[in-house]
């Protein structure tokens, strides 16, 4: 962050290539504007997202994680999004119990035709992250700990 500029949250988005990624693409080709806070990673299916990815992103200092896949019943691989749903649900709830703000882990269903929804989701998630502030969960101020979160 440069001095004098306002803090902007960094959000990593794991988007399914069959739906949400195309949805983001559609938002772009439709000249729709969404916050530039999201860094998109294309995954072959939302079911590819291991909860480990979410933790790793938070460990690296990202302020939030968005997992986005196809609506229930629309998975290219039939069941990938159902599995993602269970995984993300327990991850979100469990992280809340451990003490991570639930706003940091977000999930959505965005189909390839929902460019508009994609911009809304990213805007909402970014707004939520601005409210809770920067991710300092894994920050280094602890005694004698020289870890670098990179």
């Amino acid at each position: 962050m440069r001095q004098g500029t306002e803090w902007e949250p960094k959000l990593v988005g794991f988007l399914c290539k069959w739906c949400s990624y195309a949805g983001a693409d559609l938002a772009g080709t439709s000249r729709k504007k969404y916050p530039a806070n999201i860094r998109i990673i294309k995954v072959p299916c939302s079911g590819r997202v291991d909860p480990l990815f979410i933790l790793k992103a938070l460990r690296l200092g990202f302020d939030g994680v968005l997992v986005s896949g196809c609506h229930p019943g629309e998975c290219h691989y039939q069941t990938g999004n159902y599995r993602a749903r269970r995984r993300v649900a327990i991850t979100k709830k469990f992280l809340e119990y451990v003490g991570i703000e639930p706003q940091r882990v977000q999930a959505s269903w965005v189909s390839a035709s929902e460019g508009g929804k994609f911009t809304e989701v990213v805007a909402e998630v970014t707004k939520g992250l601005k409210e809770i502030g920067p991710n300092q969960l894994f920050s280094q101020e602890r005694q004698g700990d020289g870890t670098k979160a990179t």
Partner: peptide, 16 residues
């Protein structure tokens, strides 16, 4: 197993 099984509608409130 838990993470293989699914139902059409569940945990809906956690998704946008």
């Amino acid at each position: 197993p838990l993470l293989i099984a699914y139902e059409y509608a569940e945990a809906e409130d956690l998704f946008r």
